[in-house]
Write a protein that binds this DNA or RNA. Sequence first.
DNA 1: CCGATAAGTCAACAGTTGTTGACCTATGGC
DNA 2: GCCATAGGTCAACAACTGTTGACTTATCGG
Lengths: 186, 186
Amino acid sequence: MTKTLTARERLLAAARALFWTRGYSNVSVRDIAADAGVDAALVSRYFGGKQALFEATLDEIPVWDALTAEGPAVLEKAVESFSHPFDPETEAANPFSLLLANIIDPEMGDRIRAEVAAQIAGPLAARLGNAPGHKAQDRAAMLLAVLFGMALMRKNFQLEALGEKSTEELAAMIRALGRAALDYKP
Amino acid sequence: MTKTLTARERLLAAARALFWTRGYSNVSVRDIAADAGVDAALVSRYFGGKQALFEATLDEIPVWDALTAEGPAVLEKAVESFSHPFDPETEAANPFSLLLANIIDPEMGDRIRAEVAAQIAGPLAARLGNAPGHKAQDRAAMLLAVLFGMALMRKNFQLEALGEKSTEELAAMIRALGRAALDYKP
DNA sequence: CCGATAAGTCAACAGTTGTTGACCTATGGC
DNA sequence: GCCATAGGTCAACAACTGTTGACTTATCGG
């Protein structure tokens, strides 16, 4: 029976939803506490402070689908994970939103950069593999640029052309750009 | 003789440099005043407040090169304006940095979205023009995704693979993705 | 039933934010 | 010389930030 979550759990859930969408320094501990329905002092009590609470939400990032795929499925999984419809509810649990929302942050930018390098860019390059005239790191960077670029245009810049597109149409657009990234030869 | 700038001018210059790189809510009026070497009260005196000062810096955005070009030169100008080496000095005057740094901001996000739609995405789509099976808005959105995506990977996420690249190498990568964007057919 | 301990509230702290009104201080016209 | 005025400083304000320690309340073992 999980009807009554503990205050700690409610804080963590509220923190994730807010941090992942608005960014670290745009969220106060009082905002989080209010959403969780508890006192703000509990953030320091239970987690040790605002920074530690943010760090705790980072531990909840799931492993990226595309990194467990093989061969051509890597691109297809990557495309899939970036073409879901834009729903503000779901968005609070989207790890890529977290990265975008906090990469600008003056306090957490470095932390996010490290996370991306270690959990996303590095593993992706390793999975793409090297080939003659095909530096894996370059193609990984280009693929990520395409994926995050399309997410940015759709969710943050909210370009009119992308707002109305279905999952399939979006997937086709991202797939076309993703192929160009993976086919790139210097 | 412009040896001694007026306090108003120094405030505007400092505000642009800070707002365009760190983002609106990550900069305090005291930060700006300190950089300008004047009192923070002058921000409200001369501009009417922090928001009005930010708005004043938006008026200094130059017209994007690519929007004055014709035919294939549109892509080439666009590529060029996104492949300059990453220099923190120059960056403070880069309008695309401004857009990236403030699109997340809870207070200024809407303002930036409007700016992009009116000054960038709209004009670009108009310049690309429609053709059978070639919706201009779609291709404009994809091109912008490629451009901003690569800028994001290079300057914000600071991917290792892109840090060492020369202007020509970067231009080649962005050009390859840009072509895929403009060639896209649904 | 009773006391210990966990779970949570409350008020207060010191620091920072944007903004305001009172004040100072050069400069130039008469 | 004098004083009006633009140009600028200073101290203070209310609101908000993260964090702390004292306090209250509920739960449960004996």
